[in-house]
């Protein structure tokens, strides 16, 4: 090889960068998040929409609520099950899901998501 040393060093650096996730995760316990439901949430059994939809798209729903409430003044949401809900983060969502650190943060930290809920809303105190 011509200039083999330089080329191989460059190749190792380049591939090392691409392979970094392999090195970074090696030997670490990758624990999947396990959000906890409060007793009240367990009792209710259903959320506003089915659990799979909520897991995937809860923010879409929240965003829609925000827009329709703030801009159009529509305060009621009809779930796909036919039940009517009052559109409010604090009074509807957090009513059941009052365990912010065990419910929300569990996945949000895992995926490095940082929604700015508490810029406007008051973060509820968690009851131990």
């Amino acid at each position: 090889m011509y200039d083999g040393g330089k080329i191989i060093v460059g190749l190792i650096i380049g591939l090392g960068l691409f392979l970094s996730p392999f090195f970074y995760n090696a030997g670490k316990a990758a624990k999947a998040p396990a959000p906890e439901l409060t007793p009240k949430a367990k009792e209710a059994k259903v959320c506003v929409e089915p659990a799979s939809y909520m897991r995937e798209s809860h923010f879409t729903l929240l965003d829609e609520w925000r827009h329709t409430v703030v801009r159009d003044g529509e305060r009621y949401y009809k779930g796909s099950e036919g039940k009517r809900y009052y559109k409010s983060l604090q009074r509807t969502c957090l009513e059941c899901h009052s365990n912010y650190s065990k419910f929300c943060l569990e996945c949000h930290n895992y995926l490095d998501v940082d929604p700015y809920c508490w810029d406007c809303h008051i973060q509820p105190e968690e009851k131990k």
Partner: peptide
């Protein structure tokens, strides 16, 4: 939308050489 938590579980599994495909 997809369930990104499971997507990450899949990705981490690949990088840790213990791959598993979560449902859903």
């Amino acid at each position: 939308r997809v369930d990104v938590t499971k997507v990450k579980e899949l990705a981490i599994g690949l990088f840790k050489f213990s791959p598993a495909v979560p449902e859903g």
